[in-house]
């Protein structure tokens, strides 16, 4: 009986989620082994910190992460002083002050990451297409972090029969292959202080992991909670089963 239900659920889940994952026509991105996948997976703090560095030095010139606050960076293994120092490198607009004027001040941990453009039209004017906010990009794309990794490593020459217009680029893993973003990363572009190799693949993995964290900062707490919840429920189910057997013993 339980088996029937389980298999029914399995069928339903496969039937509905598998086709939803296949995005028409474009090759699926490579399957990276992520430290945070699986029921016990956690984020790799060093990779997150390297990913933040790439975001700050490369991505942030066009892409916002507006749902992230500096205070969230303690999740990456920074202490409060370090977070304060990182925040202080940014300038945010505050106000109005007593005279009704807006003013600029260094960011504090409670502030959110400032966006590179004041509004969407400005972003569009500067890039042709407004670069998407990255705070949820991993959850907003089929294949999640693999998609981000694929895009960052999937730049190729366009096939001969496929001329590209100005501001268009060819990417193996972009649905429809045409992408407005130029190849953002090249080997050795960002300096790593921890001796990690400075290749596009490594950069792409690190920043994809950072963006996975940005999408789902509570992933670790969720899984921990989930393990306890399942253990509790399993024990509870066992007790209820024995109790049920005992109560029903004399019926029939």
């Amino acid at each position: 009986m339980k088996k029937t239900l389980l298999s029914l659920l399995a069928v339903v889940t496969c039937a509905y989620s598998a086709p939803a994952l296949a995005s028409g026509g474009t090759e699926a991105p490579p399957h990276v082994h992520w430290e945070f996948s699986g029921p016990f997976g956690t984020y790799d703090r060093a990779a997150l910190q390297r990913g933040l560095k790439i975001y700050r030095e490369v991505c942030s010139s066009c892409h916002a992460v507006k749902h992230l606050a500096f205070r969230n960076l303690t999740d990456l293994g920074y202490n409060e002083e370090q977070v304060k120092a990182i925040a202080a490198e940014y300038t945010v607009t505050d106000g109005p002050d007593e005279d009704g004027e807006m003013f600029e001040r260094p960011a504090r941990p409670s502030d959110r990451f400032p966006s590179p453009y004041p509004n969407e039209n400005a972003a569009k004017a500067a890039n042709g297409v407004a670069p998407p906010d990255l705070s949820l990009i991993v959850k907003a794309r089929h294949h999640g972090a693999n998609h981000v990794f694929g895009i960052l490593t999937g730049y190729e020459e366009a096939p001969e029969d496929h001329p590209l217009a100005d501001g268009q680029h060819w990417n193996k893993y972009m649905p429809g292959h045409v992408i407005a973003m130029a190849k953002p990363l090249s080997n050795g572009q960002v300096t790593y202080e921890d001796g990690t190799i400075e290749t596009v693949e490594q950069y792409a993995q690190d920043v994809a992991q950072f963006l996975a964290w940005a999408s789902e900062p509570d992933l670790e707490a969720r899984k921990r909670f989930g393990i306890s919840a399942l253990i509790f429920l399993a024990v509870f189910a066992g007790v209820m089963y024995r109790l049920k057997k005992a109560v029903w013993k004399d019926v029939h």
Binding site: K2, L6, L9, T13, Y16, S17, A20, P39, K139, A140, R141, H142, G144, R222, K223, F225, G226, I227, A229, L230, L233, A234, F236, A237, M240, Y241, L243, K244
Partner: peptide, 24 residues
Amino acid sequence: FGLVVFLMLYALFIFFMPNALGHP
């Protein structure tokens, strides 16, 4: 008893694949 077994499946989704049934 049936409810608790059902809740285990439900918890599996909530905690380990919360977005599997949604759309990116």
